[in-house]
Design a binder for these strands. Structure first.
Length: 268
DNA sequence: CTCCAGGGTTTGC
DNA sequence: GCAAACCATGGA
């Protein structure tokens, strides 16, 4: 089925933007996204036209929201030269609306790991614990496991997923959300409550909490500060955070900054 | 072999 | 309350 996107939308930048670790580029123009029990194959046809593997109903009810397409990124205004440079480099990135449990586990794992290492660790978890399903194209893919699938780790296979010292953190997180409304409860909280709520999980600090809030709860007014954002604040903004200028879209600006930084590492 | 990674917790002052 | 030490290991 063909769909039209009337806003900045770049599949490759989205895949490389460090907010999802399971998006894949299958060939020169075909991308695959997996979220919850949904699998999407999407390729660009021309200009604003894309070919998607799902039905119109699934596009409008799930993937349209996943890619945050009801928000207009073209309207975002940058406040200075460096931000403009980042915007030009990163435009097309969307703040994905991803599944809270996957974000919780993924960003606990992310601490002090490189993005390739995070990918491979999460892949390992999916292969060992997630459902294996056959997609419409005949490809077999693994879903991200549910809390129930991870909580009964009787064979201690989590220990073989390259988690290192983060293993007890992941286990604690699984135990916290299993058979509870812990993650759903977050949707009705304000930012401050949500961050505190998430940080009650061992291994979740301020940065990881902000990432979960941004990428799972779509709090685009929150800007996670990681090592790259810190470098930008120190080298480009004299140590003063630029994000208060952007208020309701500071999370998006942060993501533009982050993508610019990891694609221009020699500048920092 | 060496270095560092989308940080967090614990410890010491 | 804050800064420093410590953390386990894959990937480059």
């Amino acid at each position: 089925m063909k769909i039209t996107v009337n806003d900045y939308f770049d599949l490759d930048k989205i895949k490389e933007s460090g907010q999802t670790f399971r998006a894949r580029k299958l060939d020169d123009n075909m991308y695959r996204f997996i979220s919850l029990n949904h699998v999407l194959y999407i390729s660009k046809v021309c200009d604003n036209s894309y070919d998607v593997s799902c039905s119109k109903d699934e596009w409008t009810s799930y993937w349209y929201n996943f890619f945050d397409l009801d928000r207009c990124y073209k309207d975002i205004i940058t406040e200075d030269e460096f931000a403009r440079k980042c915007f030009n480099c990163s435009k097309g990135i969307r703040i994905l609306r991803q599944e809270p449990f996957e974000m919780l586990i993924s960003f606990i794992i992310s601490q002090r790991k490189s993005i390739p290492a995070i990918r491979s660790s999460i892949e390992e978890i999916c292969m060992r614990f997630g459902d294996k399903i056959k997609t419409d194209t005949g490809e077999k893919v693994y879903l991200f496991p549910t809390p129930a699938q991870l909580v009964s780790d009787t064979k201690h296979k989590l220990g073989e997923c390259k988690l290192g010292y983060r293993l007890p953190y992941v286990q604690d997180a699984v135990n916290t959300v299993y058979n509870s409304t812990f993650l759903e409860d977050g949707f009705s909280m304000n930012n401050e409550q949500l961050l505190e709520h998430l940080m009650s999980v061992k291994g979740v600090g301020i940065k990881v909490a902000n990432c979960i809030a941004l990428f799972a709860y779509n709090r685009v007014d929150l800007a996670p500060v990681d090592t790259w954002i810190n470098k930008i604040i120190n080298t480009k903004y004299k140590g003063k955070s630029p994000f208060d200028k952007y208020k309701d879209v500071s999370g998006i600006i942060q993501q533009y900054f982050f993508y610019y930084a990891i694609t221009h590492k020699d500048e920092f």
